[in-house]
Design a protein around this nucleic acid. Structure first.
Length: 924
RNA sequence: GCCCGGGUGGUGGAACUGGUAGACACGCAGGACUUAAAAUCCUGUUCGCCGAAAAAGCGAGUGCGGGUUCGAUUCCCGCCCCGGGCACCA
């Protein structure tokens, strides 16, 4: 009776479904635990072995928590709206709804084979109208809200209207336009349309204008990664920046809370740092510089934002963003052509290219800004490294204090003023705040750090500047000119965005056969007049972005089929925050910030009782592909082994990893692989064809994809699960190599043999009392597996299992009492086998309803330890010493040792360092 | 360019809070069982030196160069290389 994983796994997977063992319900009697995997996008390529890594970890954790008495919510669903399905539809004529459904079913069957404990009765799909009805509903909540800075919370637009009618907007600065000021009288005199336009500037979900990547030839807007070197990925057509009407979420209003909220959650420091940097809060000043230009007739001021007003006497040039509104006005006749030429160049470049550009580019406008303190005229330049969206879109260049400014000044031969004396060496900028200021007028002799305040006060006094907090983060663009996304529940009437009533939700995405873009950069929905024209107005034809549905899905899982609300308060009060959230770092600043913001808004509006969605976040690494390379002699069909390739002029090709054993190519399989290789010849080394290798992304294109289905078929799901964990820390990126899986499979067979004699087909379980050594081996294992699982160190947990099983095998332990606890401890990692062993032990029901074994510490107590004894830090010998030994006892013992005596060579040690339970070190 | 992460034997990795570097596996080498194979088991396996071999011993060693410390994979400074993110991929 050998370990027949195929029949065991099939049997228990069926049993789990039939007995609905993974169904969970709210149960106030039990402590809850919510484990969530990041929402997958069901891609057409299916799962490769890298995908389930996080799912296996979270599944083990969920099962572990269940064994420890928690009511565990562990759901799964699909973020099924998205660009790839739409792209696929355009290329293959298959509607997104159809390809998505097919992908989901493939995905599901792959997941099912791995034995996950998901409660599938709670599955959600973002593209399902019963789900996106509530995405639209939340959008309307955000549309009907503004951010009350005074109260620091999201509030209803109705409350804002009341305030305007009573006192205008004097206590509530307009976030969309700081210069907008009106009284109650003015407000009450405005037309409906005028009022709506003002309200739009306050709404949390608002409509504005923003730049997109516009490709005229394709007639469509492109995502950043569809643009390569200024041309479209598809077709290579030119792409330019274009302003289009867009929806936005006013996430900037939540910036402070998004930063401070990080103190209340358990994310890695690096994750918190990334989010904090992304939000990019800075303190500084806005300063108005009067412009002087030969061609200027009127007084114009250039507003710059700086975090270092103390360096104002070191300003040698100004730089404005190419999109800056004053560019047109301040450019002089002489510089006109040069400026136009430069603007055309910049317009062809994406923002990312601009930020990543090392080459210095720029053009002089011909205008000068006047330093308000010493009257110096400072040239104003345009350069792509200044972005319109950040600060005021204009900076003051201080070459001696900022490296990028320094390079700019050097490149364009702008003379550099030194305000920090010897702290500036003329070679590179020094961003210090601790230097004493020189050449700095009224702040001469001050420490820079202190001068910041002095200058701001002075500016405010003079009325040409003010203190300003600034954020690098910008409001989130919330519309896409695409088809496969949530429609907006908005109808435009006479230029006013009118929200549809809740009773009309969901606004269903109409069926569309032709997904060509609409006119003027609009999405495909613009091509559907019957749908578009509605109730005397025109529907919003943009759709929502991918992150809409994923910003709140964790709430829907709590109450997935509720028809009346997005999630009942009873459900969200019970399940509350996600206790453990697992996913990749690539979502660090997108998804995580958006869903944190939505949660805060829903909390402020009273719909849920907590304002951070994820209590603990663990980032899983990626599993890379280990590609195999073959080398073809150029112009021939002859392939040379890797070790000999330098003797020839060769081209490198990818060979399918499935026809390579380790590094040795199966040459027959290779010949059969493609007709081109049918008569391939091989130059071998030591009779073998050895492939080269390279770690890269697991992708069809590199023929390095390993499908979990194949692994499960060959070794079983339990082996696959444990091997994925054994590969290394979950958080770390690592390559996949199927070879090592044998070790884990052997381990499981070894477990099996503790229960069963494979040859005689007899069950070995005995009712004898276990020995102390057996208990010790078991409990040491149980304890370490528990600790390691709790701290997410699954690879070391697996090795603890191996060590424990090796010991129990050596002890030939078949004692029932030990094996029962062993079966339970294995239930999270190898659930199928654990169930089989559990029933073999004569137990009723699922092993998941058992309890995690309690460790009896008395079996683990040690009385002595083998201490390493080092002399001057080098370990020279080992001594067994009682754990309760005193310093004196240790010194006597150590100094009496032969090896130690030899090294001491008659000398007395200066010092004997004895760290209890660690080591001993003699200093001589 | 900016932000974040990583670099340890032939390979994946371990060393949790500054305390025996290489646990546990893979691979490899040798052996046992077997007519043979599979399966299983045993021994060895960081590198170099010494040595017929074994044992013992010596030296070096955690990307590179410095530093702090009785002691550094771990902390600090400076570099090199690789991966992720940078706002319309999800």
């Amino acid at each position: 009776m050998e370990y027949n994983f195929r029949s065991i796994e099939k049997k228990w997977q069926e049993s789990w479904i039939n007995n609905k063992v993974y169904r969970v319900d709210t149960d106030p009697a039990l402590p809850k635990y919510y484990v969530l995997d990041m929402f997958p996008y069901p891609s057409g390529a299916g799962l490769h072995v890298g995908h389930p890594l996080g799912y296996i970890a979270s599944d083990i954790f969920s099962r572990h928590k269940r064994l420890k008495g928690f009511n565990v919510l562990h759901p799964m669903g699909y973020d099924s709206f998205g660009l790839p399905a739409e792209q696929y539809a355009i290329e293959h004529g298959i509607p997104p709804a159809v390809s998505t459904a097919k992908n989901i079913s493939t995905f599901r069957s792959q997941l099912d084979k791995i034995g996950f404990s998901y409660d599938w009765s709670r599955e959600v799909q973002t593209s399902d109208p019963s789900y996106y009805k509530w995405t639209q509903w939340i959008f309307l909540q955000l549309f009907n809200s503004w951010y009350n800075r005074k109260a620091d919370k999201t509030d209803s637009i109705a409350s804002l209207e009341k305030i305007f009618a009573a006192e205008g907007n004097r206590s509530h600065e307009c976030p969309g336009d700081r210069n907008l000021v009106f009284t109650a009288e003015q407000w009450n005199g405005y037309s409906f349309k005028e009022q709506q336009e003002i309200l739009m500037q306050y709404r949390v979900a608002y409509c504005g204008y923003g730049e997109v990547n516009w490709c005229e030839a394709l007639g469509t807007v492109l995502a950043n990664d569809e643009v390569i070197n200024g041309v479209s990925e598809r077709g290579g057509f030119p792409v330019v920046r274009k302003k289009l009407r867009q929806w936005y979420l006013r996430i900037t209003e939540y910036a402070d809370r998004l930063v401070s909220g990080l103190d209340t959650v358990d994310f890695s420091d690096s994750m918190k740092e990334m989010q904090t940097n992304w939000i990019g809060k800075s303190y500084g000043a806005e300063i108005d510089f009067k412009l002087a230009s030969a061609d200027l007739k009127e007084d114009i001021y250039l507003k710059v934002y700086t975090t270092r007003p103390d360096t104002i006497f070191g300003v040698d040039f100004m730089v404005v963003a190419p999109e800056h509104e004053l560019v047109e006005k301040m450019t002089t006749q002489v510089q006109r052509n040069a400026v136009d030429e430069y603007l055309a160049y910049v317009n062809s470049r994406s923002e990312r290219e601009r930020m990543a550009e090392k080459k210095i580019t720029g053009v002089f406008t011909g205008a000068y800004a006047v330093n308000p303190f010493d009257g110096r005229e400072i040239p104003v330049w345009i350069s792509e490294y200044v972005l319109a969206g950040y600060g005021t879109g204009a900076i003051m260049g201080v070459p001696c204090g900022d490296e990028r400014d320094h390079k700019f000044a050097q490149y364009f031969s702008i003379p550099i003023t030194n305000i920090i004396g010897e702290h500036y060496n003329g070679e590179e900028a020094n961003p210090t705040k601790d230097a004493i200021l020189e050449n700095s007028g009224f702040i001469n002799g001050m420490v820079m750090r202190d001068a910041i305040e002095t200058v701001i006060s002075k500016l405010e006094e003079m009325g040409i500047g003010q203190r300003r907090v600034n954020y690098k983060m910008r409001d989130a663009a919330f519309s896409r000119q695409r088809y496969w996304g949530e429609p907006f529940p908005i109808v435009w009437k006479d230029g006013v965005a009118v929200p549809l009533p809740e009773s009309e939700l969901p606004v269903e995405l109409p069926h569309l056969d032709d997904l060509r873009p609409g006119p003027e950069g609009e999405g495909p929905l613009a091509n559907l007049p019957d749908w578009k024209n509605y109730d005397g107005g025109i529907r919003e034809v943009n759709t929502m972005p991918g992150y809409a549905g994923s910003s709140w899905y964790f709430l829907r899982y709590m109450d997935p089929s509720n028809q009346d609300v997005f999630c009942s308060r009873a459900a969200s009060d019970y399940w509350n925050q996600v206790d453990l959230y697992i996913g990749g770092t690539e979502h660090a600043v997108g998804h995580l910030l958006y869903s944190r913001m939505w949660t805060k808004a829903l909390y402020d509006l009273g719909h849920i009782g907590f304002d951070e969605p994820y209590k603990r976040l663990v980032n899983q690494g990626k599993i890379g592909g280990d590609s195999r390379l073959v080398y073809r002699v150029r112009g021939t069909n002859k392939f040379v082994s890797a070790g000999l390739k330098d003797q020839y002029e060769t081209d490198e090709l990818h060979a399918d990893v499935n026809m390579v054993n380790g590094f040795e190519l199966d040459t027959d399989a290779f010949r059969k692989w493609k007709p081109d290789f049918e008569d391939a010849e091989f130059v071998l080394e030591n009779g073998k064809y050895i492939c080269g290798s390279r770690l890269e992304k697991m992708s069809k294109r590199y023929f390095n994809v390993v499908n979990p289905d194949d692994i499960v078929e060959k070794y079983g799901a339990d082996t696959f699960r444990m091997y994925e964990m054994f590969l290394g820390p979950v958080e770390q990126d690592k390559p996949w190599d199927t070879k090592g899986i044998e070790g884990v499979h052997r381990f499981l067979k070894k477990v099996w043999r503790l229960f069963v004699d494979e040859e005689k087909g007899k069950i070995l379980i005995k009712d004898e009392e276990p020995t102390a050594a057996e208990w010790k081996a078991l409990y040491r294992m149980v304890k370490k597996v528990d600790d390691d699982t709790e701290r997410f160190s699954f690879n070391t947990a697996v090795s603890a299992f191996m060590i424990g099983i090796n010991e129990l095998s050596d002890l030939k332990c078949n004692k029932r009492k030990v094996l029962e606890k062993l079966a339970v401890s294995l239930a999270a990692f190898a659930p199928h086998m654990a169930e089989e062993l559990w029933s073999m032990l004569g137990k009723e029901g699922s092993v998941l309803n058992a309890s995690w074994p309690k460790v009896e510490e008395q079996y683990l107590v040690e009385t002595s330890k083998m201490y390493p004894v080092a002399i001057n830090g080098k370990t020279r010998t080992e001594l067994s010493i009682a754990l309760d030994a005193t310093q004196q006892q240790v010194e006597d013992l150590v100094l009496g040792d032969e090896v130690v005596k030899k090294w001491l060579d008659g000398k007395t040690p200066k010092k004997v360092i004895y760290v209890k339970n660690k080591m001993i070190n003699l200093v001589i």
